[in-house]
Design a binder for these strands. Structure first.
Lengths: 239, 239
DNA sequence: TTCTGTAAAATAGTATACGATTTGAAATGA
DNA sequence: TCATTTCAAATCGTATACTATTTTACAGAA
């Protein structure tokens, strides 16, 4: 079976573009953001072949910035590329889901260890402000972006840009799966409670406690997603 | 001070291209490989501005594949990009060196834990064959590529493509620094001894031992590099 | 029917060309 | 001298156009 980006899909991509309201002065970055969002949200399901001209038309630009965007997404593991055959949305699988959850957990526990000892009062006040802001904000459609932003704020004192990037990527991959869950169960009420407990551990300088809290914060959610999604993903086409 | 890719440098880039003998049918991939090698080897030092037309001339292609290559390298953290200002080789620093060493260590210890329990007899025979092949081969100019290949062979049973990619990237970043060390001290004699001990631990199913061996295998080398390079990197322009 | 082979259509890849932006250097004024 | 303005050169960003490759559709043979 071949899945192709239909006219309908491309129209929705164009709508998504308008919705995201990104900086128009940077076509490749904008295209990457739109296509990434489309893949993560399931608008472009795994196996979809990404026709450069269709996407270019939808985003009102030429193929060149589209190709650059697709290269970027290839580097993030969201699309596969083959010379002269083009780009295809990478396949989902139970094993990739489990990998992304494990990676996230492992990288973030490491990030807690690296960041906590270096966190200043000011760093932690910034995190707290973010939690407060997050709590008043009720727009669940962006909750996962906020969640990532908050987690990265915890790790910022480590000043490890490569680690940050890896965490970001693990989140993006994982989000392809958590998004499926959300669609069935509605967006979960965000557990700012847990974030505050982790912040407390940071303030007390309790590394092991903070790591343990982050561990359960991430693991509990991951296990819930995994339990629900494993049966749904099995039997689906895997490469 | 501004560093610019001189004609001389571009000529060397062109030579590097010929030396690497990459698949000519894939210009963007080829360009990325050449430029990556040039950055890691120090031919293009940090701060060098990467003029698209110069590189295109050196690699005998147009700007389009060059831009795609540079986007890829941006994703790997080797170049920085700013709209309308182009691409610049990312800066080196003691902190980035330490980060890359820590990341490598942390990711690879995790990879040992994930791969060892799943490794079959066949998997390990393949690793052993690689060690043997590696030992006879005396071409030190490719030793770091071989080393990475061998390490990834250990982790292959885990079948975690994203983890593999992250390890690869951490190696590449780290290699910018280890390469500096090599230039002063000559290429170190590769310690196949340690690889064989790790392989033994894999064969015995001794996870904790394998992790400990991998830890010291990586840490000892990292510490040696760090001790030597820290003084040399300090005072150098950092962003 | 099923299997070719072949021609047409679709798509990928990229060199070229050109407007837009930034940079560098000379000219001017303080 | 030093700062500021101006203009030319360098460079970037990408739409367009063209070639190369792949895919599709179809005709005829087995």
């Amino acid at each position: 079976m071949k899945i192709m980006g239909s006219d309908r899909t491309m129209h929705q991509l164009s709508q998504l573009d308008r919705r995201l309201k990104l900086d128009a002065s940077n076509a490749p970055q904008r295209a990457a953001d739109v296509i990434r969002e489309a893949i993560v949200s399931g608008l472009l399901p795994s196996g979809s072949s990404l026709k450069q001209t269709s996407i270019a038309d939808a985003l009102q630009c030429s193929k060149i910035p589209v190709r650059e965007a697709l290269r970027e997404l290839e580097g993030q593991g969201l699309v596969d590329f083959e010379t002269n055959r083009g780009f295809v949305v990478s396949s989902t699988s139970v094993s990739e889901m489990m990998e992304s959850f494990k990676l996230r957990l492992h990288l973030e526990k490491f990030a807690v260890r690296e960041s906590l000892p270096k966190a200043t009062q000011g760093d932690l006040d910034r995190v707290e402000a973010l939690i407060d802001e997050f709590e008043t904000l009720k727009d669940v459609s962006v909750s996962s972006h906020w969640n990532l932003k908050l987690h990265l704020a915890f790790y910022a004192p480590a000043k490890m840009r490569h680690l940050d990037r890896m965490i970001k990527r693990a989140h993006t991959i994982a989000h392809r799966y958590t998004h499926m869950y959300m669609q069935n169960h509605g967006e979960g009420v965000e557990t700012q409670d847990e974030h505050r407990k982790i912040l407390d551990a940071y303030r007390q300088g309790e590394v092991d406690l903070a790591v343990a809290l982050m561990d359960s914060h991430i693991s509990v959610a991951s296990n819930r997603f995994a339990r629900d999604l494993k049966p749904r993903l099995r039997g689906v086409h895997e490469e």
